[in-house]
Design a protein around this nucleic acid. Structure first.
Lengths: 333, 333
DNA sequence: TTGTACGCGTTATCAA
DNA sequence: TTGATAACGCGTACAA
């Protein structure tokens, strides 16, 4: 691969002159600049940003650590983050932890070796489960939709309590008085918040939450959680179910379909996230929309701000209710 | 950030010794090695792989260029590719072209500046539309599910003709004699192959394809294509529709739902890809499964092979039919 | 306006 | 067993 020295030799100048000419330094004659540019083009010169990085002590690189790429929520985060990164001339290192804290730690270490300018950690739950592995990091780090006990790093989150509340208020407004909640235990803190929004809203409406309305199924994935949760809720006699997320809600819809339960006529179902499939399942899912792409953009903007030594504030974005066809007025008893 | 020289100074040795000790060189005394390792740990030393890369003339980095992250097909490609990369100690630079050939060219250029060891281009169609921008690249490049006129680069693809054929044979076996095809014009070559598989299969069964059975809707996205395509096919009087991909098929399912057309009782619908939502829409979609993650893994393995100067062969992977609930016996007329 | 010399952090070669 | 030195490709302070 050809370097500025090669060009310098061909042009009969020093590599310094070439370096300057290539970057349009005004001190170099228009003549020699022109000659050098042509030579560079001719030889197919491609600047070596590794060398530039070593020199400049920055790589224009962001490490993005996600639990899984094949998660519809993560997907939109990435879309948003990548958009901003590309705009600002940064490249993204993508790596997946598969929810393994050991792997997560290892990846952050790798990012640091590669001297990324900043890191975004998406949907991590290891802070709450395994302590503060991320605390020893020496570059700007932003948590995106992650669970942390301390405010050790700037974070972007949504208003989970408010989001849950608006969904439950919607169900109340439709006349439901027995409302179930299907939770997920793999994101304990977020689950607690959505549960809190659910509980508070019902209580404010003068409805005490019956213990058997709430279920946190013990299961490996959301499909299972939906199935198990539905069984439980049906036994509890609810007329509507608010689910921790869309994947669970969609699983509930499917189970209903197979059991011959008409949604929303016999049972209303609401989710959380507004992942893309939510709008094209049958019936289309009423859900709480997180501004996923916006969160990705905001997260990226925050790391970039930190890199530029600007101070940032934690961001808590608002959710909006998307009313679709999976919820309707409560059946008369 | 602390370097081997810092450690050397503290330890009273040369930086060379530190470098060796850190990498377990047998020539260094166990004593000093131990001392240096401790010092490194103490000071929080993190090796600088930028410097290592500059020296070694390789970065252990793969550039992955995709059209969009928020595409369920691409998502699985990435999942597979990332898995292999991580196994082999490579990091992935992720960048999106948004189907813009200019951007695509720019990104490949950026990858080369960053001295990636190899590049994977996913789902590109620019080869066929805009000539050979990728031909000037100076590092190993593998095309994954992309459309190229020439065999300028090693490629991983599926058997599109065979896949389409197996889907149509399935519909024929169910007794359908009027089968429609809804295509997509944004992937012209792939579309042609799937169309070919469809046409050949029908002809082999002695069924001439009526011109109005086939429609390539002029639209911006697959949702539109599904809607428009369905209208056309209904007018043509088909009893089953084979769609270019799952997104279109799912859109068809939705339109049917809204129009009160019972699937599969009145109309059978089949797709291509087997993206994740395919199994949880209602009714679950019969479709041709591409081994997406496997393709991602294979693509990554191919670049790595090229990097190691091994020769590789184009890969054409097989598809399998996933029979679900969106297809059944043809209605009696 | 151009060139010399040095530094970025690491590894490799050669000498001691 | 250890160290001095050069090299990777580039940018920059200083000198000419």
């Amino acid at each position: 691969m050809i370097t500025i020295k090669d060009i310098a030799r061909r042009a009969g100048v020093s590599h310094t002159t070439v370096s300057r000419a290539l970057r349009g330094d005004a001190r170099i004659t228009a003549d020699t600049t022109e000659r050098i540019l042509q030579l560079a083009e001719q030889l197919g010169y491609i600047p070596n940003s590794i060398a530039q990085s070593l020199n400049a002590q920055r790589t224009n690189t962001i490490g993005m650590l996600v639990t899984s790429v094949a998660d519809p929520v993560v997907m939109d985060f990435m879309e948003g983050a990548e958009e901003i990164a590309q705009e600002r001339g940064y490249c993204i290192f993508l790596s997946t932890s598969r929810n393994d804290p050991v792997r997560e730690f290892h990846i952050v270490e790798t990012f640091q070796r590669r001297r990324v300018d900043g890191v975004i950690v998406v949907a991590s739950r290891s802070g709450v489960q395994y302590g503060l592995a991320l605390d020893r990091i020496q570059v700007p780090l932003v948590l995106l939709d992650s669970e942390e006990i301390h405010d050790s790093h700037p974070a972007v989150n949504v208003d989970n309590i408010g989001g849950a509340a608006v969904a439950v208020r919607h169900l109340l407004a439709l006349g439901h008085r027995q409302v179930g909640y299907i939770g997920a235990t793999d994101r304990p803190l977020t689950n607690l918040k959505r549960l809190a929004g659910y509980t508070e809203t019902l209580q404010q409406a003068g409805i005490p939450v019956a213990p058997n309305w709430v279920i946190n199924p013990v299961a490996d994935d959301d499909i299972q959680r939906g199935r198990l949760g539905l069984e439980h809720c049906l036994a509890a006699g609810v007329t509507a179910i608010f689910c921790y997320n869309d994947q669970i809600a969609i699983s509930v819809l499917n189970s209903c379909y197979h059991k011959g339960i008409a949604v929303p006529q016999q049972l209303s179902v609401a989710g959380f996230d507004d992942i893309r499939p939510a709008s094209y399942v049958n019936p289309p899912l009423t859900t709480v929309r997180q501004p996923l792409q916006q969160m990705g953009r905001t997260g990226m903007e925050m790391v970039l701000a930190l890199i530029e030594k600007r101070t940032v504030q934690n961001q808590r974005l608002d959710c909006t209710l998307m009313v679709r066809a999976s919820t309707s007025t409560a059946p008369v008893r």
